[in-house]
Design a binder for these strands. Structure first.
Lengths: 208, 208
DNA sequence: AAGGTATCTTTACGGCGCTTAGATATGAAA
DNA sequence: TTTCATATCTAAGCGCCGTAAAGATACCTT
């Protein structure tokens, strides 16, 4: 657990403690898992007193919110990259794979993201409006591949259905029960592909 | 928060403290939510000392496991009931609706169930073998409706895909973002139906 | 230079999971 | 029936946690 600066060199005023705390939290999350993510541990990791974070975050939940938000942004980027880099997949499948791979590669972060969402009973606020959010990307890709943009309810339903499938798979993929399936299919990636294949992700599959 | 027996009437040896603790935990869970579910609070609710639970559970996680297990059993029963009571739905849809309704009606319990699963990185142990588990019920229903039972991998994939969809919807349904969709569709139930309609749950939809 | 404000530290409170040691009841062996 | 090992419970305490209050320190404006 390294600190941003050597302990004795840091001035009394940190400079950007808020940033440093979020970074420290992500470092801890990666290294020790979600259960090790206490406010005090984050403060320790950042080299400040246990009370210091309260000048930048109302409480622990607000710190975790900041961490979660960064997670959503990274997820959006990775999905955007996956859509751009054509891998010979249907673009919706490519998005789904990118989503699930993000969850596999950042399990602790993914958990913090949805823990925060469940607590507030909502996904990040701008999700359905921010053009480069993961959610909007799915919806836009639906349109690009033939979904009727004027059938708003139906478009939203298709997006939700795809989102549900991706999130469901992201959680299931971590369970030992399905290891044998991955092996039989010749790898995790093939497993993801196959499960998505069993879901009706594509608007063209439905008579709209 | 009532106790099982009035405090002074309880004998030194409780009789069935293990049972009482699980019940107390479920009562607390229902009343105060998952965050209020501390071992000490459960012990208080059951009217015993904070250390008493350790004679029946190795640690807090083991208590929560017991609570979660009851959750999975109840879920299995409710899905079984839903399958038996024909509501004019495709039986797989009926199972999915029952799954999602369970999560809606027992959000805290549902959360404990999956928190435990994520911690152990596996769903309850016998899930894929116990004839009346929710999971096996889905798989069997797939077969009853035309899935090829000898195509084992494909059958498993279809079951996983349906499970992913149901779990995904169960989590999304609690988010405020989708309230307007429920309203536009004329209710929660219609929303569930519509989302499932956008997923390829039925084996007959795929060319196997 | 002075004073206000933002930032950080110190200290402290109650609650938590869990451990240890001791009290009490049960039930099997003598 | 007495004995005594065992199971079950309580009491006390450890280190951790989230958070609040009050004081110290540095920065910023005037």
């Amino acid at each position: 657990m390294s600190e941003a600066k050597s302990a004795e060199s840091r001035p009394y005023h940190h400079g950007d403690l808020r940033r440093a705390l979020v970074d420290a939290a992500r470092r801890l999350l990666e290294a020790e898992g979600p259960s090790a993510l206490s406010l005090r541990a984050v403060a320790r990791e950042a080299g400040v007193s246990p009370a210091a974070p309260y000048h930048h975050f109302k409480d622990k939940a607000e710190l975790l919110d900041a961490v979660a938000q960064e997670g959503w942004e990274i997820l959006g980027q990775q999905m955007s990259d996956a859509k751009a880099a054509d891998q010979g997949l249907h673009q919706l499948t490519a998005l789904g794979i990118a989503y699930v791979c993000f969850a596999r590669d950042n399990p602790a972060l993914y958990r913090v993201m949805y823990d925060a969402a469940r607590d507030k009973e909502m996904l990040p606020a701008g999700m359905q409006d921010n053009k480069d959010s993961a959610y909007c990307m799915v919806r836009d890709t639906m349109i690009e591949h033939g979904a009727d943009p004027t059938a708003e309810v139906d478009l939203e339903l298709a997006t939700v259905a795809a989102w549900c499938g991706a999130h469901g798979l992201a959680e299931m993929a971590g369970f030992k029960q399905f290891e044998h399936l991955k092996e039989q299919l010749g790898g995790e990636r093939a497993f993801f592909d196959a499960v998505f294949g069993h879901m009706g992700l594509f608007p063209s599959m439905h008579g709209h």
